[in-house]
Computed example of a mutant assay.
Amino acid sequence: MDLFEAMRNRRTTNGPFLPDPVSEEHQRLLVEVAAMAPSHFNSQPWRFILIDDREIIERIADISGESMRRLMEEGTFWKRYRPYFRFSEEEMEEKRDGIFIDQLPKVLKPFTRHIFSETGQAMMNRLGVPGTLAEDNRRLVAGSPLLLAVMLDRQEYRPGELSAFYSVFGMGAAMENVWLATGALGMGIQFISTPMEIPENWRRIVELLEVPDDLELMAVYRLGYVPRRQRRPSIDWTSRQRRRISQYVFRNTCRTPERDGIGVRQESG
C-alpha cells in the first residue's frame, strides 16, 4: 500500500475482528516497525507485551467491560467527554472534530439531546444502556486474537521532566507506525481506554501483566484481522471528519491562517 494512501485510509476498528490468530510473522513485523520510530537520542523508551493468552485476554475484557459500565452508570463518561459529542451530520460538518453518534437503538434516539442531563442519565440507566455498552465492550476485547500493551522505561519516562515529553513523543511515533502497518496487513486496531479511566482497574491490569516497577504501563490495544463486512456495536459513532487546514495551520505567525483547498483530503477515521 502506498504510504500516503495508508495514512488517508487509517481507521480505528470499532467492530469485532475475525477469530483467526494473528500470525507470528505479522506480530514480529508490528513490533519491528514500532522500533523504527524516532526517539530522543535513540533512547527507544518503549517496551511491548504481545498478549495472545486467552485467559489473560478474557480477564482484561472483563475489566474493560466493568469499567465501561461504571463510567456510563455514574455519568462520568458523558461529563468528561461532553465537548466531543455531535448529534447530527450538520453539527459534525460545522465543527469537523469530535465524534458523531450515528447508531443507537430506536428506543434511545428520542433521548440523544438529553444524555448530558440528570434526567437523561436516569433514563439511560433505567433502559440498561450502561449494561449494553459494557457487554459490547467486553465482547469486543474478549473476541480480539491479540492485545498489545505499551510501556515506557521509567529511567526515560520521568513525569515533570522534559524526558517525559520525549518518551511520550517516541511512544506516539512508534504506535503510529504500528497503526499504519495494521492497515497494510489487513488488520485493525483499537485503543482499550476504559480501564485507564478508573485507577484501581488500571492497577489490576498492571498486576495481571506483571509489569515490573521500572516500567510504566501506558496503554493497551486490541488487534486482529478485519472481516470484509463489519458488524457495528449496538451504540456506535464515527469520526471521519477532520478540521479544515485553515482551522489548524498558520502561515509564518499565528495571525495568518493557512488557506484551505491545499494539501490532502480532510477526512479520515
Rank of each mutant, 00 (worst) to 15 (best):
L3R: 09
F4K: 08
T12M: 11
T13A: 09
T13L: 14
P16W: 01
P16R: 06
F17Q: 07
E24L: 13
E25R: 08
R28E: 15
L29W: 12
E32L: 08
A35N: 11
M36P: 05
F48P: 04
F48Y: 14
I49D: 06
I51Y: 08
I51V: 15
I56C: 06
I57E: 05
E58C: 06
E58D: 12
I63H: 01
G65E: 00
M68N: 02
T76M: 04
F77L: 15
F85A: 12
R86W: 00
R96G: 09
I99Q: 10
I101Y: 00
Q103F: 02
L108E: 11
P110L: 02
H114M: 09
S117V: 10
S117E: 04
E118T: 08
E118A: 12
M124F: 06
M124W: 05
N125Y: 07
R126M: 14
G128F: 06
G128Q: 06
V129Q: 02
A142L: 00
G143D: 13
G143Q: 13
P145V: 02
L147I: 03
L148A: 02
M151C: 15
M151K: 09
L152K: 13
L152W: 09
R154C: 09
R158Y: 02
P159W: 05
S163V: 07
F165E: 04
S167H: 07
S167P: 05
V168S: 06
F169E: 14
M171Y: 01
M171P: 03
A173R: 08
M175Q: 05
N177A: 05
W179R: 01
A181F: 00
G183L: 11
L185D: 13
G186N: 07
I189F: 09
M196C: 07
N201T: 06
I205V: 12
V206P: 00
V206I: 10
E207N: 13
E207R: 15
E207D: 14
E207W: 07
E207Q: 12
L209D: 00
E210A: 11
P212H: 15
D213F: 06
D213Y: 07
A219T: 07
V220L: 03
V220M: 02
R222I: 11
L223H: 01
P227Q: 08
R229Y: 03
Q230A: 10
P233E: 06
T238P: 15
T238I: 15
T238A: 15
S239D: 06
R240T: 13
Q241A: 13
R242L: 14
F250P: 08
T253E: 02
T253V: 04
T253R: 02
T256W: 00
T256Y: 00
P257E: 05
E258D: 14
E258P: 02
G263A: 03
R265L: 13
S268V: 07
G269K: 11
